[in-house]
């Protein structure tokens, strides 16, 4: 049984292969090939217990491109609100004929629990602050497009690293592939513990901006502002915002990523988000191909 629940324990060869397959699908789609035979007749349950639009659309599109049927699942109107356990809900999806379950849940480890007990391939679409492996895969595809190798690549991850599943999965993936990661952010959101992920730890964006080949600007969650973790948007922008002026200190070849949705004018300025260094919209496009590669991988076809 093949699952895709995180990058922490994935084998390097499998990760490399997924990147290659995603790039190959992109080429074939660009050339107008029809790929609907690949997973023809398969059913993919999209069990998004936590709300999502972009990731879910991206998975739906990936299903359609490969000829699989997405089974949509609406947490608000489902039996999870009636107290059914996650495992029982997943069992229902299995019994109605799902061949694979894509799960997003606000709790860490929910996909691993299902993988352990359900007897169906499980794909994580994000578990709490732990991992978001398909997002990391699309980030890796995007980085691969620009640098073709990860060896010696230096990637900065800036912002709320501590609560970011995107950052964590990306760290695990980049370290597997031989890249260096440096994290930076406000004290309570970017603690030195993160060195356990193999990353170097810095404080301000200015401490890392000149030395990286790529910058992943994390979304700052507005609900964290004004509490005990962070004072204001203005303060955040002053030290960790990728402003137009600050982006001038990047190396000439360096690129900018963002997992979206963006807080324009807070962690990233319009001019940078829409400027020549930005690959943010390429990331979204690559998301579909990355998820096609993952679905194909766990359903046991090549």
């Amino acid at each position: 049984m093949r699952h895709f629940v995180g990058l922490r324990h994935i084998q390097k060869e499998r990760l490399q292969h997924l990147i290659d397959v995603a790039c190959e699908y992109r080429r074939q789609v660009a050339e107008g090939h029809d790929l609907t035979h690949v997973l023809s007749g398969r059913a993919v349950a999209l069990m998004f217990v936590e709300a999502s639009t972009r990731t879910r659309f991206s998975f739906e599109m990936a299903c359609n491109r490969l000829g699989a049927h997405p089974l949509a699942f609406n947490a608000a109107s489902s039996s999870t609100t009636k107290g059914e356990t996650l495992l029982d809900t997943a069992r229902v999806l299995r019994q109605v004929g799902a061949d694979v379950i894509v799960v997003r849940h606000k709790c860490v480890g929910a996909p691993q629990q299902l993988a352990q007990t359900l007897g169906l391939p499980i794909v994580s679409a994000g578990d709490g602050p732990n991992e978001h492996p398909t997002q990391a895969l699309l980030d890796l595809v995007t980085l691969h497009d620009h640098f073709s190798t990860f060896k010696g690549l230096r990637v900065g991850v800036v912002g709320d690293v501590r609560h970011s599943r995107v950052a964590r999965s990306l760290c695990f993936g980049l370290k597997k592939l031989g890249a260096d990661v440096v994290v930076a952010g406000p004290g309570p959101l970017c603690t030195p513990d993160l060195m356990a992920l193999g990353a170097t730890h810095q404080h301000k964006l200015d401490d890392v901006i000149g030395q990286v080949d790529a910058l992943m600007m994390l979304r700052i969650q507005r609900e964290r502002l004004g509490g005990s973790m962070l004072a204001s948007e203005a303060e955040y922008r002053t030290f960790w915002g990728l402003t137009d002026a600050r982006s001038a200190h990047m190396q000439d070849h360096a690129i900018v990523l963002h997992p979206a949705p963006m807080n324009r004018g807070v962690e990233i300025d319009d001019v940078v988000a829409d400027g020549p260094r930005s690959v943010i919209f390429d990331q979204m496009k690559n998301g579909v191909f990355a998820r096609m590669a993952v679905l194909n991988d766990v359903m046991g076809q090549s």
């Binding site: 709490g128 732990n130 599943r165 513990d193 356990a196």
Partner: peptide, 13 residues
């Protein structure tokens, strides 16, 4: 425990 363990597990510590 907060620290290496919570960081590796992705959980709050």
């Amino acid at each position: 425990r907060e620290g290496e363990v919570s960081t590796l597990l992705g959980m709050s510590g």
